[in-house]
Design a binder for these strands. Structure first.
Lengths: 338, 338
DNA sequence: GTGAAAGCGCTAACAC
DNA sequence: GTGTTAGCGCTTTCAC
């Protein structure tokens, strides 16, 4: 049978209040009493019931994290770092995976916010902010991660998308490339939009003719990059920018199989997932944009806990910067590049 | 303010019992009453509080899954498939990541079983069964996943490890290789032990001299394979078996960088993570052992729910089989190979 | 066909 | 320094 706090109290010869306070260090208890309580706990093998506790306090000590694709190393690594951060603070993490499916996301938001978690980290696959907003109970702590919205109602933690893509284009142009294509993720995502618009602006700024057909969109998941790549190569692109690590691996694999040589036959720039094997293998043949995944994760953890513990924390966007790693540092100026 | 079941009852002009039964379809309610209740629910925007509910019923509708390494695609994919299975049955999944750390595993087992989840899926990094067993509350539903123990106290879902490794050795020998090395994962894991012993037995059966130094162990995580590989190559191995997909990617990358050609300079056999890019890229140069990850995941989900819903379900081991994919099908017999 | 009411195990006033 | 006790929101017996 389940052993409860009153069993402990009875055996220790004290009240349940004392047992509770002893366990939680929440008011003074004399050391003799403490000893008795702990002895009773040990003897009975008592473990406080987490659901009774969270029911009573309203605190679950759990954060939900809704990710679009757990098998994408970018998110897997982030989950890892969020979890490490949270568990250091005594919190748990519930992960839900939407596979970039809006309906799955809706379901999960509803379920998680209905008393399962204290706060929500959300890398949303939605594009309609109203739709999202309607699902969040008023006042519920939410931090958007990686993907944001125009309406700045929720705090967010993300990575600057504009600068590295802009720079990519400039470098490619400087290298002599004139037909520069780009493969984006799902068009509805803020990350995709930002990256594409950085590309467009850079193309114009560099004096190249804008070609709508050089912009191709994948689905941000596996097995969507090759078609785009085919398409761009058919159009005679001499350089391609890939805006997501998963699609980049695919692109590299595909080019390799087709016997296309990186940086000789075609220039590639890509977001890469740090420490992934592909990064190691091709780091010297492509420009890499390395996102600070671990930092993103802990920042996300930090922000959501702030808001769980103090709901009045002001809204703001935290923007981290990626590292741009040119594959072949050109003769450099005397001063730093960044 | 929070809207509760009695607010709904009041507005609908019925009792809380009726509201509860209406929501849960748990006894007959006339359709007029139902209508009133649903109208009130809609009007107030009522959502039943999950923690009150699970406190009351003792059911959390949540399963915990403790994995050793979430950034390993094998486990990431499995999480995905477990979650898909569970959410179809109205259950949630809490994932905890141990990074192959026994202490983190202990902490997580304790936390999850203390009222957070109804059942536990466990891909344990422990080797001492007693230590594990002591952490599980008596009667708590547990299913071991991928990694098992000699003592068959808990149900398990895993993949046959012996046969594919044994076959690997035989094929390599048939190809003419005589110095066959193997890189295992953490030595304490059942998967590693089974694979190594399959290797040893096959070596002996094929009449090769057993060489202890041809057996090397990584840590089942990233960045541990290269050292082992170096070592084996220094010893003049002409073939290497890698027993885990993550380490295989590394091995391939590393060989590539060192300019060693697969299947020419060295033969490689490896567990690969299906659909990973490396698989695509090198499938035609190495023998691959493909584990049925999705099937593992749904089997794990199925088994744990069975046990959550009926604690008396008999213990048994479910063993799935991997697909062995020779890289270069030799002229084959008329009948099937398997 | 529906209501009243007793708790589930715990925490936290409030009281002494 | 410790005890008493009122609920948290829900489900579910028992009663009508």
């Amino acid at each position: 049978m389940k052993v409860t706090i009153s069993d402990v109290a009875k055996l220790a010869g004290v009240s349940t209040a004392t047992v509770s306070h002893t366990i939680n260090n929440t008011r003074y208890v004399s050391s003799e009493t403490k000893d008795k309580v702990f002895a009773a706990i040990a003897q009975l093998g008592y473990t406080p019931d987490a659901s009774a506790r969270s029911f009573r306090t309203g605190k679950k000590k759990t954060i939900g994290f809704i990710v679009p694709d757990i098998s994408n190393k970018f998110f897997a690594t982030m989950i890892e770092s969020v979890e490490t951060y949270l568990s250091g603070k005594g919190y748990h993490l519930i992960v839900a995976n939407t596979k970039e499916d809006i309906v799955r996301e809706e379901t999960n938001i509803r379920l998680l916010t209905a008393g399962l978690v204290d706060g929500l980290l959300l890398a949303s696959t939605m594009d309609n902010f109203q739709q999202l907003d309607a699902l969040i109970p008023p006042g519920f702590p939410v931090v958007l991660v990686d993907r944001v919205f125009d309406v700045k109602k929720y705090a967010s933690v993300c990575v600057s998308n504009f600068q590295p893509i802009y720079r990519s284009v400039c470098r490619l142009v400087g290298k002599g490339d004139r037909r520069i294509g780009i493969i984006g993720g799902l068009p509805r995502l803020s990350t995709t939009k930002e990256r594409i618009s950085a590309y467009q602006q850079a193309i114009v700024d560099c004096g190249l003719p804008p070609e709508e057909t050089f912009i191709r969109y994948g689905d941000s998941m596996e097995n969507s990059a090759c078609g785009c790549l085919d398409d761009l190569m058919e159009q005679g692109c001499d350089a391609v920018i890939v805006t997501n690590g998963l699609m980049a691996s695919e692109a590299i694999t595909y080019l390799h199989r087709r016997g296309v040589h990186l940086s000789k036959d075609i220039d590639l720039v890509s977001f890469v997932d740090y420490e992934s094997d592909f990064y190691e293998l091709y780091a010297n043949q492509i420009d890499s944009i390395i996102q600070p995944v671990d930092a993103l994760g802990s920042a996300a953890g930090e922000e959501i806990l702030k808001r769980v513990e103090n709901p009045d924390t002001p809204i703001f966007e935290k923007v981290l910067t990626s590292t741009y790693k040119p594959y072949d540092q050109p003769r450099s100026w005397n001063h730093s590049d960044r």
